[in-house]
Structure formats: structure tokens, C-alpha cells
Write a protein that binds this DNA or RNA. Structure first.
Length: 141
DNA sequence: GCCAACGTTGGC
DNA sequence: GCCAACGTTGGC
């Protein structure tokens, strides 16, 4: 099993959108970056994913979802038959009682090498090591 | 709203 | 293949 983080603007899709319908998968589409797309294509059913809220009042990790359908052709792309872009389906796992703020994440030594905390980083799908994952989960408690 | 950093596009 | 211009991301 692998670990990931995916960014979203909570106004568009937040951890609450998962939590209010915990058995209903959400199609994660619209990714238009090749590196992010390639990571999505590596995702396996059961992989765990941090939901990260960006461009909002409280930026940080809001909770956990799981991959429940592996990569398929993004239905929102111009020509879905081209299979240029990919989507995955995600399902609710956990909503943290409080968001782990970006400042807290930046202060975690385990995350020092993670692209998430590097200035200017725009990658919206980021792989996490188990070590990095566990450090964040601890910070959420 | 500002602006730095980045990825993509397109002319050459 | 180079690189300037442009559009977008995302923290603040």
C-alpha cells in the first residue's frame, strides 16, 4: 500500500464533501499536470490519501481518503477517448478534528524533503513515504 | 489583491 | 532546441 497527498481548494471539494456522504466515492478529475497524472496512474485501490486544503483561510491537511477505483480516462477532458488525462475515485476515511496547518507541516523534520513544504511547489499530487505519513498523522492528534 | 514560482505554448 | 510570453498555482 502506498501513501499520497492531493491538493484541493475546499470551495471546490473539501474533506467535508467526503464526510457528509462517507460511502459515496468522489471522482477526482480535472488534473492537468503530467507529473501529477503519472502519480495518479500509480495509485492502487486501498492506497491512503491526505486531503490538503489550499488557497483558503486555513491551509493544511484536513483528513484522509482512500483510493477505491484506479486510474481511468478523465471524463472531463476535451477528448475522453484520447485517455490523455486520468481520474481516480476516492472514498472517505477520516476527517481530522483540526486541520494540520501548513506552518506545522513545515516544522516537521520528517517532511523537510517533501515537495509540499518547498517554496514555489505546485505539484498537486504528491507521494508520501510511510515515515512522512506517520509524522503527519501524529501531528493531527 | 499581490506576486513569486512554475509549466506550457509557440515562434524562430 | 531555445527561450520569451503567457496563464496558473498558491501562500500570504
Amino acid at each position: 500500500m502506498a501513501y499520497w497527498l492531493m491538493k484541493t481548494e475546499p470551495e471546490e471539494c473539501s474533506i467535508d464533501d467526503f464526510a457528509k456522504n462517507p460511502s459515496k466515492p468522489i471522482c477526482w478529475d480535472g488534473v492537468r499536470n503530467y507529473q501529477a497524472r503519472n502519480f495518479m496512474r500509480e495509485m492502487k485501490t486501498g492506497d491512503l490519501v491526505f486531503i490538503y486544503h489550499s488557497s483558503c483561510d486555513l491551509v493544511g491537511i484536513a483528513g484522509v481518503v482512500a483510493v477505491c477505483k484506479e486510474a481511468y480516462s478523465d471524463p472531463t477532458q476535451e477528448d475522453p477517448a484520447s485517455n490523455r488525462w486520468s481520474a481516480v475515485d476516492l472514498i472517505f476515511k477520516e476527517r481530522f478534528s483540526r486541520i494540520i496547518p501548513l506552518a506545522t507541516l513545515k516544522a516537521l523534520p520528517e517532511l523537510a524533503d517533501n515537495p509540499l513544504v518547498r517554496k514555489g511547489n505546485r505539484l498537486s499530487v504528491i507521494p508520501f513515504t510511510e515515515h512522512e505519513w506517520n509524522a503527519c498523522v501524529l501531528a493531527a492528534r
